[in-house]
Amino acid sequence: METVNPIERVLRGVAITLVILFFMFPILWIVLMSFQTNETILRMPPSVVFTPTIENYQALITGKLETSAGILEIAFMKNLFNSFFLSTASVAIGLVLGVPAAYAFARLKFKGSEDIAFTLLSFRFAPPLLVLLPLTIYFQQLGLANTYGGLIWVYQLIVLPLILWIVRGYFEDIPADVEYAYRIAGHSWGATFRKIALPLAGPGIAAAALLAFIFAWNNFVFALVLASADKQPVTVGALAFVTASGIQYGQIAAGIVLSIAPTFALALYAQRYLVEGLSLGAVKG
C-alpha cells in the first residue's frame, strides 16, 4: 500500500469537497426552493432562512395550481406517469432488441456488420429536429401521432444506439474462450448466450439501461412535437408552470425534485453494478 502524507490527504479532501459543492449545489438549491413560496424565492437578497411550506408539492399532487389569476389545472402527476411509462417501455424494448443485436455485432463478423452498426450509431449524430418534421407528417398519416406506441418507437432513436454500442463493448470484453468452453461442455449456442454472455455482461447491460433510461427521461423535443397534453412527459409538462400570471418557481422546483427523484434513486441503486469490477478473475491476461 502507498502511504499518503497528511498534507496530500487534506488537499485531496478540499478538492473533493469543492467538486461536490460545485455539482451538488444546484440540486440543493432546487430542493430548498421547492419548499418556498414564490415571494421568498424572489426576495432580494436571497436567504437560506425561511419557513418551509409544502404547498408546492400539494399543488402538484392535487393538480390544482393557485395563481393570482385563479385556479389552474395542471396534469403533473399524469406527466410523471407518462415519463415513467415511456422511459421504462422504451428501455425494455431497447434491451430486447439491442442486447441480442449487440451480441451479434460483437461475436459474428458477418458481411456489412460494421456498416450496420455504424448506421445505427449515426442516428445519434443527426439533430432531432431534422428528423422531426418528416416524422410528424408520417406519424399523422399512420395514426401514430400522440400515441404511446409512436413515442416509444421514436424513443428507440435515443435508446437503441446507446444500448447497442455500450453492451457490444461489454460482450467483446468477454473472452471468447469462456464461451467456447461452455459450448464444448455440450451446451447449445442459445444456452451459452443466456448462461454465460448475459450474466457476464450484466453490469454493462445495467449501466446501458440506466443511461438509456436517463436519456429517455430527459428527452424534450420528440415529446414536445409528437405528444399532446395527455401523453406528455414531465419535461414538456413543466412548461405549464410558465403561466400568464408569472413563472411559478416554487412549483417548478418541486416538479424538478419529483422528476429527478426516480433517476436519482435508480442511479444510487445501480451504482454498485456500475462500479463492480469487470475484471474476469478466471482468465489470465
Partner: peptide
C-alpha cells in the same frame, strides 16, 4: 472435453 491454456473458467 477441452482444457484451455488460459483456463477459461466461468467467472
Amino acid at each position: 472435453g477441452m482444457a484451455f491454456q488460459n483456463f477459461a473458467l466461468f467467472p
